[in-house]
Simulated scan of single mutants.
Amino acid sequence: MPNHQYVEFHILQTVPPANLNRDDQGNPKEAFYGGVRRSRVSSQAWKRATRIEFDKDLPKEERSTRTKQIAKQLAGRLKTRTKLDTEQANRLAGALLAPLGITGGRRDGDTAYLLYYGYGQLDAIVDLVADQVEQLTGLDDEALRETAEGLEVADKLKRGHPMGVALFGRMVADISGLNVDAAAQVAHALSTHQAVQESDYYTAVDDANEKGETGAGMIGRIGFNSATLYRYAAVGMHQLAENLGSGAAAVDAVGQFARAFALSMPTGHITSFAHRTRPSLVVVTVRDDQPVNLVSAFERPVPTNTDAGIAAASADRLADEYQRSVRQWGDEPVYTAVSHAFDDGKGALAAAFGANLAFQELVAGLDKVVSRAWKQA
């Protein structure tokens, strides 16, 4: 078992006119890179899309959520399990969470910040009291508080992390013991070329207008752009195994992450643009040294007038940068695989990353490689 191992994902994905991730003005986010403006999708936006995609096929008890409403959710589970009424469930939930010392929010029962945890962890807290709710709810406030302090509520949030929390981590500023170091690093997605922001002026007709009545029912504007994006993420298998307490669980989680990261899509203004696409290229690498973001392939922006198309030219750039990096630093990964939708006439992609695989074959190959190192850990 290596001391450190990183699974990397390099993705090229072309998105049509869209506003995936807006700034404070409502326009698509941008970044200045390589001397020109690029389209940008923040890591936070794509991580959330990945989390949603990741959780949708998991059993409910293995899913996770990020919310200020942990007390409300715990009370709901207490009601379901023990048949307490709403007032009793809210009182007991508040008492159970009070010893954690989580800063309260503006609304009664809310926390001051979003807390990321698993539904299974809430169920474990309910397990602590499920068979004694009558005794607990019969106590006065002071006695209930003292009893709750003797329960291992914090321990239930420190252990048994779902895959989502193990991958994306948890930061609790005022309770360091609840922090979970993220196993996944996700870069801001960046266009491989200069991107131009445009504006859509639109109107909506009032369908109930009388015949001959003119004028729009509403008028608006929305910013958009289109881009071929380079997306990058790295998962530290060592950290993932530590967070989950099992190498076998880490192997399963990284395979789930591979699918979720590749298939996820931020949904900003999606009903207006229907912008969901599939990646044109997915490269997976496994390294025993350190993760390497290959965005430097696009520091010189890909020309937008290339005959081959921006996506194909970007794929060739990525292949060249990968081979150049390996030659320069001698840091060839222990495993490399690619799944792409290009006609690799010059063989650049095959020379850099190997034979073109169906995506499921790529994930299966990744599973075999990480299983050898981590299955028994």
Rank of each mutant, 00 (worst) to 15 (best):
D320I: 01
S176V: 11
D140H: 11
V302S: 02
I125Q: 08
R159N: 15
T50Q: 05
N225C: 11
T271P: 00
K211Y: 09
E8M: 11
K60T: 13
A18F: 03
H269K: 15
I270C: 01
T14P: 03
N225T: 09
M1D: 09
A195K: 03
R327W: 06
D108Y: 13
D252S: 12
A173K: 12
L281Q: 10
A173W: 06
G35N: 06
A182W: 02
L114C: 04
S272A: 14
G354Y: 10
A358S: 13
V7N: 00
V15W: 10
Q13N: 06
D140W: 07
A182M: 05
P301K: 01
Q239L: 15
Q328D: 13
G109P: 08
T86L: 10
A93C: 13
A248H: 01
A311Y: 04
V133L: 11
L58A: 09
H188R: 04
E299I: 14
A351C: 03
G150M: 08
L178M: 03
S191V: 01
D344I: 10
G347S: 12
A373R: 09
G247V: 01
A227V: 09
T203V: 12
L100I: 10
L20V: 10
A377M: 07
P162K: 07
T285K: 09
A262Y: 07
G150N: 13
A364M: 10
K68M: 03
K29Q: 04
R48Y: 12
Q73A: 11
D141E: 15
A358E: 15
W374S: 00
F32I: 13
V282R: 09
G365V: 05
Q73G: 06
G236E: 13
K56P: 00
F224D: 01
